[in-house]
């Protein structure tokens, strides 16, 4: 137990935790910045949306280690190549959910909005995005959890992060470092899962929550 506490006081513990969070946050932000506009861009064509969803679905099947590993021969070791790999991992879940969410907005609702004189921009901003928000946020949550988990693997291509500690534990056969690093990563993933879940609930408009409850009956 004592040795575990020592792990948390190591100078590299804090610095790797920071790198881990940095990698995850930046990758997620870039992922959102790419996937969300892309989903919006294709959302007016059901065919394009379906194609994008299918491609992204196949993209999700690609193992995260494979993506990191394939980035290494192309871009080499380090933080930036790791970031690129994590962005690639972050995109598919957001793309899938945003496209699906925007496609699921009832055509009658959109017709009514258009018929009342909302412009295309207003229909997107005031109708489609708020109604699709819960599904979009669910995608961001999946993506966030996956990025936090995969950031652990960044250590293999020199990206740093808490994976560094786990690997160090293995190399030195130091159980405390190994367990300390693992528990921290696990906590980080669970915190991400829980806090994004809360965010998802916050961004679900009240009317939709009520509608879901009524459908459930």
């Amino acid at each position: 137990m004592n040795s575990l506490l020592e792990v948390f006081q190591r100078p590299d513990f804090l610095s790797q935790l920071v790198v881990h969070v940095e990698l995850s946050v930046v990758a997620l932000l870039i992922g959102v910045a790419i996937a969300l506009p892309a989903a919006i861009a294709v959302s007016r064509s059901p065919l394009a949306s379906t194609i994008v969803i299918n491609i992204a679905n196949t993209g999700r099947a690609v193992p995260s280690l494979a993506i990191l590993a394939l980035v290494f021969p192309l871009l080499g070791f380090g933080f930036a190549p790791s970031l690129v790999a994590l962005v690639l991992l972050a995109i598919p879940p957001i793309l899938i959910n945003a496209s699906t969410g925007l496609m699921q907005v009832s055509p009658q609702v959109i017709d009514a909005a258009r018929g009342m004189g909302l412009s295309d921009g207003q229909i997107l901003g005031r109708i489609k995005l708020p109604i699709a928000a819960p599904v979009i946020f669910a995608g961001i949550r999946t993506s966030a959890v996956q990025v936090v988990a995969s950031a652990t693997l960044a250590t293999f291509i020199g990206g740093g992060g808490l994976g560094e500690l786990i690997v160090l534990g293995f190399q030195r056969n130091d159980l405390a470092i190994q367990i300390g690093g693992s528990l921290t990563v696990a906590m980080l993933a669970i915190i991400t899962e829980v806090s994004f879940g809360a965010l998802e609930r916050t961004f679900t408009p009240k009317g939709l929550r009520i509608a879901r409850k009524h459908r459930g009956k």
Partner: peptide, 18 residues
Amino acid sequence: TGLLFSIPSLALFALLVS
């Protein structure tokens, strides 16, 4: 099972090995 699912794999491997 959800808790198990959200633990990053390298971490779970490291914990199980110990």
